[in-house]
Design a protein around this nucleic acid. Sequence first.
DNA 1: TATTGTTATACTCTATAACTATA
DNA 2: TATAGTTATAGAGTATAACAATA
Lengths: 146, 146
Amino acid sequence: MTKPPSTDSDKLVDALVQTAFRTMAALSRIGAEHDLSLTQLRALGILRDRRLRMTALADFLGLEKSTMTGLVDRAEKRGLLRRGPNASDGRAVDVFLSSDGAVLAGRVHAQVAEALSPTTGALAPAEQRRLQVLLDRMLDSQAVLR
Amino acid sequence: MTKPPSTDSDKLVDALVQTAFRTMAALSRIGAEHDLSLTQLRALGILRDRRLRMTALADFLGLEKSTMTGLVDRAEKRGLLRRGPNASDGRAVDVFLSSDGAVLAGRVHAQVAEALSPTTGALAPAEQRRLQVLLDRMLDSQAVLR
DNA sequence: TATTGTTATACTCTATAACTATA
DNA sequence: TATAGTTATAGAGTATAACAATA
């Protein structure tokens, strides 16, 4: 009942998973500094250049609409997000960043870049570009991960 | 108050963050299939080749010791983990996988590899090796991400 | 009728503080 | 005294089901 030996493909998967946990740990820590859950942090990032109706944001985040209500309630109470009417559908509610929310989203983004820079800095500039190309190709290869 | 233009370094950071969210989404989904939270999934993975005392596991996961008690309680009740005495410290409690837990951990690991394979499969074998080398170098470059 | 969002409710995950047992 | 772990408690995040308003 011991762990079977790793294949080459396993090693890449393990590296991806480890990288993901490291990255999420940095995001969590930075979020916590601003009293933001990982989900709220992500919502701020998504809304940085979009105005979305509740269900669309829920889809982005993979959450139920009732969960969105609570998340947006709390963020709106803090003055980070705002609700507004949707131009084309009277049932829908749009969500977007307040100016405070936009400032915070920008600061968080800068902090994330700074937090990851020692990591990416372990690679030479040419390697960083190669890594980015490889990751982007993987990301483009499918809309949703099965 | 709009988004500033992206630098090259930003693009790599964004790719890392996107990859992390995609990877975590796959892990969450697979965990949910087995009624495992992301944290429980990770605990199973960590304990796959280790026997740890409560506080050591808590450190790995970045959790408080009281949170560990609850997590281990639930997993032990399900028969996935077991508690045992620590050989050298009468206060300490060791945690380790039960045989059922080891089977599940192995299955989950295989599922994760399978779930990510379409993604990694977007790259040619030589590229996959290069990606793995680059990621491992980043991971090795520091114990903890600041 | 179907869809959008909210409300009511319940459960999991998490942390803080107080406690017990051992070092 | 200090450390390891548990218990008690409270808050955030999540989902399901029932509901109101609009399409």
